[in-house]
Nucleic acid binder design. Structure first.
Lengths: 185, 185
DNA sequence: GGCAAATTATATCGGCCCGATACATCCGGT
DNA sequence: ACCGGATGTATCGGGCCGATATAATTTGCC
């Protein structure tokens, strides 16, 4: 997931780790916060795999101006392979795209995602959330009254959240369909 | 976290891994699903640490009846140390207890948690969620109209969820306070 | 009675990610 | 002149996941 997000952000501009993390925060709105303990090793791995390369700025393009020498910053940029990889993930709508984390990140890049892939991700996510909702409904019904008060409260809250998310997804899907109809006119 | 949950469940009765996982599902209502890839290694580790021991049933107490010999089941039960550990975690209300996963699991054991610890966990969680909420509000305000439609939709949904959770927590806290007042009368 | 499918049951492996921790620099305020 | 807070990179141990393998037992069906 982190790899995917990094790939997406580096499409905007070359960046170093610290900046990447801030943009990551903005993009994902703190609903998902990657730590440096993931970020830096991931950057390393991606470099090793040839998805990104370290930019060798002689010093003149350094955004912070006053760049004289003391620069411990590693600025990374995408390689062709990195771009391909990003496009490949964007085109994917498999089951892994509907779990909590992955879904949010995929959605953050929806404007660059093909319309029919967006649709399949949205629908897959809805199915996934509906399953969770049914599980919670069953648990609440099964346990009835004799269940622990706090556990029931927890399940009630979970059920409400899933119900809201399904409604939200329905609206998004409807919007997508409307757009599709417009396009085909 | 898994360790905590296992400790809590084994207080009810000795159990083997598979059963433990089912009870885990019931308890957490699929808002959190631990995999076998976590469960079995954790069980091992806990045994190594002396928190649980493998029950050496000669065969007669095997719940499935018809137990003649072919039993590949490892039934675990708590040790004194295990019980102490559980009590220690129950009595804790530190920052780690307010992140998403931990909070839910702690709450699932609230009926065995001291009232003032419950209170501190609830309030800590509220503070945590409020922070997230403010982050999302800021992001939405900052970006205004020029932000990507999908990202905004994601943030909007996140904001709504955090607002609801804060309201929910307020109710729970009010309920706790009412109980506290009752008790002190 | 017999066979396939689902359930019960345990286990390992590679890999992602987190929290804690450690450094070092640069800038603004006092 | 100094200090705190942001900037910036990095590692380590550990928790958890998904995929995968294996095998016995139960259940459903013909």
């Amino acid at each position: 997931m982190l790899e995917f997000a990094i790939l997406g952000l580096l499409h905007e501009a070359p960046m170093h780790g610290y900046e990447l993390r801030k943009r990551l925060h903005e993009l994902l709105g703190a609903f998902r916060a990657f730590s440096y303990g993931s970020l830096y090793p991931t950057l390393r791995r991606m470099q090793r795999c040839g998805l990104i390369v370290e930019e060798e700025t002689g010093g003149e393009t350094d955004r912070t101006a006053r760049s004289w020498g003391r620069r411990a910053r590693r600025v990374y940029k995408l390689t062709g392979e990195g771009k391909e990889r990003f496009a490949a993930i964007l085109a994917d709508a498999g089951p892994q795209t509907w779990d909590d984390d992955a879904f949010g990140i995929h959605m953050a890049f929806f404007s660059r995602t093909p319309a029919e892939v967006r649709m399949r991700i949205l629908e897959g996510r809805r199915r996934r959330v509906e399953e969770r909702r049914e599980g919670l409904r069953a648990a609440l019904a099964r346990a009835g009254e004799q269940i622990d008060r706090y556990t029931r409260e927890l399940h009630r809250m979970g059920l409400e959240s899933t119900e809201r998310e399904v409604r939200w997804l329905n609206e998004l899907i409807a919007h997508e369909q409307a757009e599709q109809r417009e396009r085909s006119e």
